[in-house]
Amino acid sequence: MEPAIFYILAAVTVIATLFAIAEKHAVHAIVYLVTSFFALSVIFFMLGAPVVAVFEVIIYAGAIMVLFLFVIMMLDLGHPERARLPGGRDWWPALVLGAVTLAAALTLFVSRGPAASAAGKAIGVKEFALALFGKYGVAVEVISLQLLFALVGALYLGKRRNDRGEGGRRLGEGQSLLREERHP
């Protein structure tokens, strides 16, 4: 039964992602993408990674996509009629590249065939935490530094400089965005 659920979720993920990238309306694209991330998070859960599954929902669906939504709503970008649709010449390289990647994946699938799956055991929270903070403690530090730099950078970019005409008048906009950025 579990493989069946996996394939259904895989189908949901792929179809939702397909809709997301074919949608010219940015807000709809984000809703489709959140659906896809949900299915993906359940797949993670079934692959024995509950922590990653939950963080997929917290960070991807709950923070990053919300950040996208926030920017779209704040900058009023949700007007598909105003957006420029991609022209024909944009499609060809994309399709070729996508086809190559897809072909590589399918070759992998066909050439090896479904091998006998090793009985991988589910990884508990404790094991995960030990690996994260023990073996990869340096990585955690590096990532925290990177987040700090991102924070400073976003702060700098979001700041309204007063030497440009309208500066300082619509202060709330930039400020509230900055506060968003610290969350992830």
Partner: peptide, 21 residues
Amino acid sequence: LNVGLLFFMALSSIAVYGVAL
């Protein structure tokens, strides 16, 4: 769930969508 607390956090971060959308 062995990640019950994170499950709650995840759902509360999802609740944002109702308000936003």
